[in-house]
Design a protein around this nucleic acid. Structure first.
Ligand code: MN
Ligand code: MN
Ligand code: ZN
Ligand code: ZN
Lengths: 143, 143
DNA sequence: ATTCTTAATGAGATTGAGTCTCATCGTAAT
DNA sequence: ATTACGATGAGACTCAATCTCATTAAGAAT
């Protein structure tokens, strides 16, 4: 799964639902996020698209990402360095992130008990959990 | 506890340890964060100090907050609206935050099992947990 | 294929939180 | 009181992100 053709279809459906046109720029942004390594920032994506010969502006990159995030195709991630990062949610299970304070490396993790606890905490307070931000800042154990 | 005199003493000790001078501005910032309601942003603190007749600049507010955060007198909190918020850690146990998406209200919570799980997840990956960011974005349950 | 309507785009201006500069001020040691 | 040097403030600056608006191009209609 997650073939190029499949991803184009997913994008087209979202754009149609939103009443938006299918453009080369929007496809380029979605392709860039979908195909590439994860946790990339907007400028990274912008530079990469340009380097592949597709004409695009920063404004369009940001505008397109907003649409993708709104429609849950892409996840926005703040690792605390002032720049948002993005990753495709296609073929991805939910996970949270551990950021190494020494290398900047981002490690993904998932723990169902942790997820359940969060739902419970919200409920116990009379709320419904909509989303959560959870990052562990860590240091390698030296022996 | 947490009398004004006590708080001044705490500040003086930190400044001494850091080799920094005790100034009216630094006291004003610490007092503002320590005395007032929680989760305030830097500009809020800046305006409030000025309104009380103490001459201070934004630069000094930010610089002082950095010292306070470094010395664990104050906690920096990012609720995702682009502005950091601050709260005194004096007489406060560790807690995380639930942000109501409808009212913007910030509810504090603490769950020891949750805290333990995070330590464990880091360790299982060969890391030591230094700090964590954990926010639940919630919506009131309507019945 | 050509025309037409209107949404989408791009270059560059703008915003805003946070940082930096450096001339001046004030703490605190003596 | 004098003095040394750290602290401060006004405003310039940074940089991610947003906005403006003249121009471009989807894509529907024919
Ligand atoms: Mn990830
Ligand atoms: Mn709090
Ligand atoms: Zn999670
Ligand atoms: Zn916690």
């Amino acid at each position: 799964m997650a073939t190029a053709a499949k991803n184009i279809q997913i994008l087209k459906e979202v754009l149609q639902k939103e009443g938006l046109r299918f453009t080369r720029q929007r496809l380029a942004v979605w392709t860039e996020i979908g195909i590439s390594r994860k946790h990339r920032d907007a400028d990274d994506i912008f530079i990469s698209i340009r380097s592949k010969g597709v004409k695009v502006s920063r404004a369009t990159v940001y505008r397109t990402i907003d649409v993708l995030v709104k429609n849950k195709l892409v996840r926005k991630l703040d690792v605390g360095d002032g720049k948002n990062r993005f990753e495709s949610k296609i073929d991805e299970e939910h996970h949270d992130h551990m950021i190494c304070l020494e290398t900047g490396n981002i490690i993904e993790f998932y723990n169902s008990r942790l997820e359940q606890l969060q739902e419970k905490i919200a409920l116990d307070n009379g709320y419904e959990l909509v989303r959560h931000v959870h990052q562990l800042f860590v240091r390698p154990i030296k022996k």
